[in-house]
C-alpha cells in the first residue's frame, strides 16, 4: 500500500495504491493524518490503483472523512473500480461520500 500526494489546481490529490484492508488501514490513516493535521481544506482521493477494500478499509475512509469534516475540510473519492464502487453502494456509503467518476471530474467540482 502506498499514498502519494500532489498539489493540483490548489488542492491535494492523493493517489492510493494497493489494498485498503485491516492490515493496511493504520498506514492509510497515518498518511491522511498528515493532511488532516495541516487542516487541508480540499482533498481528492484517487482510488484507481486500489485493488481491494474490506470493512476495515471502508471504516478507515469514513474516519478520514469525519476528521476532515470536523474542521470544515472537504473530500471527494474518484476512479473507483466497479467492484469497489459496488461495496459503497451495498453499504450505502455512496450517500455519505462525494464520489466522482474521474480525478478531473472531482477537481472540477471543487474549483
Amino acid at each position: 500500500m502506498a499514498v502519494k500526494t500532489e498539489q493540483k489546481n490548489g488542492l491535494a490529490v492523493c493517489h492510493v495504491e494497493g489494498e485498503i484492508d485491516i492490515n493496511t488501514a493504520p498506514d492509510i490513516k497515518k498518511a491522511f493524518d498528515k493532511l488532516i493535521g495541516k487542516k487541508e481544506p480540499r482533498v481528492v482521493i484517487n482510488l484507481a490503483k486500489v485493488t481491494y477494500v474490506d470493512s476495515s478499509g471502508l471504516a478507515t475512509l469514513v474516519e478520514i472523512l469525519k476528521n476532515m469534516r470536523s474542521y470544515g475540510g472537504k473530500m471527494k473519492l474518484s476512479n473507483m473500480s466497479p467492484k469497489i464502487k459496488s461495496l459503497f453502494e451495498i453499504t450505502k456509503l455512496e450517500k455519505l461520500f462525494d464520489i466522482a467518476v474521474s480525478e478531473e471530474d472531482a477537481i472540477s467540482k471543487f474549483v
Binding site: 474490506d54 471504516a59 461495496l87 450517500k95
Partner: peptide
C-alpha cells in the same frame, strides 16, 4: 443495520452485513 443514518458513520458493523449481502 450499518446502512441506516444513525449507524452509517460508525467504525464497525459492516463485516457481517457484507457477508450476508455477498
Amino acid at each position: 443495520d450499518p446502512t441506516v443514518e444513525d449507524n452509517i458513520t460508525r467504525n464497525n458493523g459492516r463485516g457481517v452485513y457484507l457477508i450476508k449481502r455477498l
